[in-house]
């Protein structure tokens, strides 16, 4: 499975990369929002994992970009420090499939990825 990660914190990005590639996924990781949107449109990954606070374009914009792609059902996991209800709600309204708050556990992330993928 091809997974695109949009996350500006190097450390978080790297650890997710390590964990998910151990799980056998192909990873494309980016630190910037606009580049992520472009890559999503051209590469059509199976899943996108995105932060909300991203430089260039916000994670919410990424979620709505993904959900506007009709040719493929791409899953989206939002990963954010912001755990307030209204933000979570907004993300789901835009079509996010999962919302994980930071600090997060890599094991949990991996399980959620697996679950989502099995639904495809």
């Amino acid at each position: 499975m091809k997974i695109l990660i949009a996350e500006d914190d190097n450390l978080v990005r790297k650890t997710i990369e390590i964990k998910l590639s151990k799980d056998g996924h192909e990873i494309i990781s980016l630190a910037e929002g606009k580049a992520a949107i472009e890559n999503i449109n051209t590469m059509l990954p199976d899943m996108v994992i995105t932060d909300i606070m991203l430089p260039g374009a916000s994670g919410l914009e990424i979620v709505s970009t993904v959900k506007n792609i009709t040719s493929k059902d791409i899953k989206v996991i939002v990963l954010s420090t912001m755990g307030q209800e209204n933000i979570v709600e907004e993300a789901f309204k835009l079509g996010a499939d999962e919302y994980i708050t930071k600090p997060f556990s890599l094991t949990e992330l991996s399980i959620r990825v697996k679950k989502l993928m099995s639904r495809v």
């Binding site: 929002g33 606070m53 991203l54 430089p55 260039g56 374009a57 916000s58 914009e61 912001m82 307030q84 209204n86 933000i87």
Partner: peptide, 10 residues
């Protein structure tokens, strides 16, 4: 405007 919209603040 797009870049202003991506600023961190709820």
């Amino acid at each position: 405007v797009r870049s202003l919209l991506s600023l961190y603040y709820n």
